[in-house]
C-alpha cells in the first residue's frame, strides 16, 4: 500500500513518538523510576510503524518482549503504557504485566510476550476466530530473528497456512538473539525463505525504510483480508541499544550501531517528506513539540498515579472464582 500525504505525516509523528518514548523510558529507567528490566526498540521504529500503518484499529497484533513501539504504533495509550512500566495501578495491565507483558485489548494489541515466538501459535487461533466470526480483520504476529528458531514459529506458520488464516507473520530481524548473532544461530541465513517450506509468500524488506515495510506488510494484509491466507515478511533492522537496558554489549563492536544511525529510520522518513514538500523545519518542530508534550503528559500521569494496593495481587486471576483455594 502507498500511504497518502496525511498518513505519511501521521507515520512520521508515530515514529517520533516511539523514538522519544523509548529514549525517555531509558532515562527514567537509568534514574530508577522504572523497576524490572526493559528492552528498547530505538532504531527499529520503522517496523512498528510500518506494520501498524497497514492495519486497522480493529486488527490484532501479537507482540514481543521488545513491544513498546508496537503498542504505541497500534494506537495504545501512552499514559497507560508509561504507567504500566512504572508498575502503577493506572497501567494498562494494572501493574501486573510490566514492560514485557503489556497489553491493550482496546486497540487489538493482544500482548507483548516474555517467551519467544509465543505469539506465532496464538496467531492461527486468532485467525480462526476471525474466520468463524466472519469479519474481515487480520492478525499480525511480530517475532524476532531469535524466535524464528523456536518450534512455535514453525508450528504456528504451518497451522496458519493449512487454515489459510488471515494472518501475517512479521520477523523483526535486528540481527541479535539476545547476545547471539543471527549468523551463528540461524541455519540457512534467510528467515523469509522459510515461508517457501509452508507454501506461503515470504519477502525480505529493509526494516529501516518505513515505506518498504508498509508496502510489504500492506500487500500481505490485503492478501489475508481477501481470504488468501498468511504471508511472512522479514524486516531487517538494527538495534541501536543493548538487548536490555544495562547490557554492556561486549559481543559487538560500535560499527554496527554507527551503521544503524547512518540509516536512521526516522531521519529517512523525514527526508522523504521534505523531498515531497510535505514537511518543512517549522512543521517538523511543531510535530516534535506535540509528541514531546504527549510523552511529558504520560510521564506526569505515571508519576502522579498511585502504586497498586497489595490486595490487587489477588485479583484478576479468574473471571469467576468465588471459592477459597
Amino acid at each position: 500500500m502507498t500511504p497518502g500525504p496525511d498518513q505519511l505525516l501521521e507515520m512520521y509523528a508515530a515514529m517520533l513518538r516511539v523514538r522519544l518514548f523509548e529514549e525517555r523510558a531509558r532515562e527514567l529507567y537509568a534514574g530508577g523510576r522504572i523497576p524490572g528490566f526493559i528492552h528498547l526498540s530505538v532504531g527499529q521504529e520503522a517496523v512498528a510503524v510500518g506494520v501498524c500503518a497497514a492495519l486497522r484499529r480493529d486488527d490484532y497484533l501479537l507482540s514481543t518482549h521488545r513491544g513498546h513501539g508496537h503498542l504505541i504504533a497500534k494506537g495504545g495509550s501512552l499514559r497507560a503504557l508509561m504507567a504500566e512500566l512504572y508498575g502503577k495501578a493506572s497501567g494498562c495491565c494494572k501493574g501486573k504485566g510490566g514492560s514485557m507483558h503489556i497489553a491493550d485489548a482496546s486497540v487489538g494489541y493482544l500482548g507483548a510476550n516474555g517467551v519467544l515466538a509465543a505469539g506465532c501459535v496464538l496467531a492461527p487461533g486468532v485467525g480462526l476466530s476471525i474466520q468463524m466470526r466472519k469479519t474481515d480483520q487480520v492478525v499480525v504476529a511480530i517475532f524476532g530473528d531469535g524466535a524464528a528458531n523456536r518450534g512455535p514459529f514453525h508450528e504456528g506458520v504451518n497451522l496458519a497456512a493449512l487454515w489459510r488464516a488471515p494472518a501475517v507473520f512479521v520477523c523483526e530481524n535486528n540481527r541479535w538473539a539476545s547476545t547471539t548473532a543471527q549468523a551463528v544461530s540461524t541455519a540457512g541465513g534467510s528467515i523469509a525463505q522459510r515461508a517457501a517450506g509452508y507454501g506461503i509468500p515470504g519477502v525480505t524488506v529493509d526494516g529501516n525504510e518505513v515505506l518498504a515495510v508498509v508496502e510489504a506488510v500492506g500487500e500481505a494484509v490485503a492478501r489475508a483480508r481477501r481470504g488468501e491466507g498468511p504471508s511472512l515478511v522479514e524486516a531487517q533492522t538494527i538495534r541501536w541499544l543493548g538487548h536490555y537496558e544495562g547490557d554492556p554489549q561486549l559481543y559487538r563492536g560500535k560499527d554496527e550501531v554507527a551503521e544503524g544511525r547512518g540509516r536512521d529510520p526516522v531521519g529517512r522518513l523525514r527526508q522523504v517528506l521534505e523531498e515531497r514538500n510535505l514537511l518543512d523545519a517549522a512543521h517538523a518542530a511543531r510535530i516534535e513539540a506535540a509528541v514531546k508534550g504527549e510523552i511529558d503528559d504520560a510521564v506526569a500521569f505515571a508519576e502522579a498515579s498511585p502504586l497498586p494496593d497489595a490486595r490487587a495481587a489477588f485479583e484478576d486471576l479468574f473471571a469467576f472464582y468465588p471459592w477459597r483455594d
Partner: peptide, 16 residues
C-alpha cells in the same frame, strides 16, 4: 501440540 493449544488461546481471547 503447541499450535493446537496456542491457537486455542488466540481463539478464546478473541471470542470463541
Amino acid at each position: 501440540e503447541a499450535a493446537i493449544v496456542g491457537s486455542a488461546l488466540g481463539a478464546a481471547m478473541t471470542g470463541l
